[in-house]
Design a protein around this nucleic acid. Structure first.
Length: 392
RNA sequence: GGGGGUGUGGCAGAGUGGUCUAAUGCACCAGACUGUAAAUCUGGCGGGCUUGCCCUUCGGUGGUUCAAAUCCAUCCGCCCCCA
């Protein structure tokens, strides 16, 4: 099987959700899948052994960050990123496109590419589509991404259009660069659909990307601050334009509730920093909703974070102890909470896949949401809950 | 016994006539985080409500003044040095 190719196993009879597999050089990924983010070649705070025990099938790395440090020379010399970081399951690298968005103040975009100032030492670097592909080839992940501009939100129509068209031209250059040598035998290149919240732009982008032809298709530029309804609308209008026999990857999403909504609309792959970042900030996902373990209410709560979780954190430690670790700024909590959140996401995706196998996606979703929003009675959460219901 | 210093919100610590409910840090109470410039950031932290104002606060008491955390008197507590 060609690296990055998608096999559709089963379609939900209830919605656009689908069960499948993505084949890569280093293994087969069951989809829908959640990919923990490991920007610098490590999922922050979580050792490989634990990451594997969580059931994580594939993790992300970031070209821009790895290019700056340790540098592609070292990664190449080590035998590729997965020799370097000892992660033997599949990996995907982002192109640096997201850094065009997030390093807003220290970059300049032009037709040929983007000039960045290193956030580490201020030195100037230029990423063209060709450069990004070369870097990603040197890093050596199984799936690599086109260099794009992650259009900021809000974006005026004209800006979004120009940005989307630039990403299209860059995508073609990425493809040319990618197929220049035989790297494609081991790696797969995914294209990225842009167009902000404008469905006509999304349509053009999707059609053009498909015409250009990629092994898989990502939807980028979402979950950057737009209303949730806009994200859903974009998915409902864009996903049907993508070929059924290719993987669909929604970049940067998301929260547990988002995963349900987006799988329902036909997404196969997700990545998000949320489980690890929130873990480092004390916020924990549980089957009964998210909690901030730092809060006073947990000082004397000697039960586990989530009674339904069997991660090492939940097996070994109480909320009261984790609350203490956070308050005392003991570094152990960074790992324990990140690990739990990763388990939560991975378990959630397993639950989703099982529901697709038995074709009970919507029932399982409803069950999840009822429990997930049961803990808090706050008005805000209930409004969110009702908004989610609208999509049934 | 003599000399000097000091007492400020939970803690540390600024402030030495009005712009003081009183800087700043910590602690505390919450919130946010979506292809990671994030172990980060934001808000709150005397009381009351009609959210603009009112009331109560800088060891105690009394005073000076239009006005006192700030000046004076006195009392109380603590610290240092000399005997």
């Amino acid at each position: 099987m060609e690296c990055g190719s998608y096999q559709l196993l089963k379609k939900s009879s209830q919605c656009k959700a689908r069960l499948g597999k993505v084949y890569t050089t280093r293994g087969i990924i069951d989809t829908p899948v959640f990919m923990p983010v490991g920007t610098q070649g490590t999922v922050k705070g979580v050792a490989n052994e634990y990451l594997q025990s969580s059931g994580a099938q594939i993790i992300l790395g970031n070209s821009y960050h790895l290019y700056l440090r340790p540098g592609t020379e070292i990664i190449k010399a080590s035998g590729g990123i997965q020799k370097f970081n000892s992660w033997d399951r599949p990996m995907l690298t982002d192109s640096g496109g997201f850094q065009i968005f997030s390093l807003n103040d220290i970059r300049k975009i032009e037709e040929n590419g983007a000039e960045f100032q290193s956030h580490i030492d201020g030195s100037k670097h230029f990423f063209s589509p060709e450069k990004s592909i070369q870097v990603q080839k040197d890093i050596g992940a199984d799936i690599i991404m086109c260099f794009d501009e992650c259009t900021p939100y809000p974006a005026m129509y004209d800006y979004a259009k120009n940005s989307m068209e630039l990403s299209l031209r860059w995508a073609k250059r990425c493809k040319d660069e990618f197929y220049k040598d035989d790297a494609y035998a081991k790696q797969a290149l995914f294209g990225i659909v842009q167009g902000s919240v404008y469905n006509d732009l999304r349509k053009i982008s999707a059609q053009e990307m498909v015409n250009t032809g990629f092994t898989g298709y990502a939807i980028g530029g979402l979950s950057v601050g737009e209303p949730k309804e806009d994200m859903i609308s974009v998915l409902e209008n864009t996903v049907p334009l993508l070929p059924e026999d290719k993987a669909r990857y929604l970049m940067g999403v998301g929260m547990p509730e988002d995963l349900w909504e987006c799988v329902q609309r036909g997404i196969d792959m997700f990545d998000c920093v949320i489980p690890t970042r929130n873990g480092r900030n004390g916020q924990v996902f549980t089957s009964h909703g998210k909690i901030n373990i730092r809060n006073a209410e947990f000082r004397k709560d000697f039960t586990a974070l989530d009674p339904e979780c069997s991660c090492p954190t939940c097996i070994g430690y109480s909320k009261a102890y984790l609350n203490h670790l956070v308050r005392a700024q003991e570094s152990l909590y960074l790992s324990l909470l990140s690990l739990h959140n990763i388990y939560f996401m991975i378990n959630l995706m397993t639950k989703i896949r099982k529901s697709l196998e038995s074709d009970t996606f919507l029932e399982t979703k409803k069950e999840f949401f009822e429990k997930y929003y049961s803990r808090t009675r706050s008005e805000k959460i209930w409004i969110k809950f009702l908004v989610c219901w609208r999509f049934f």
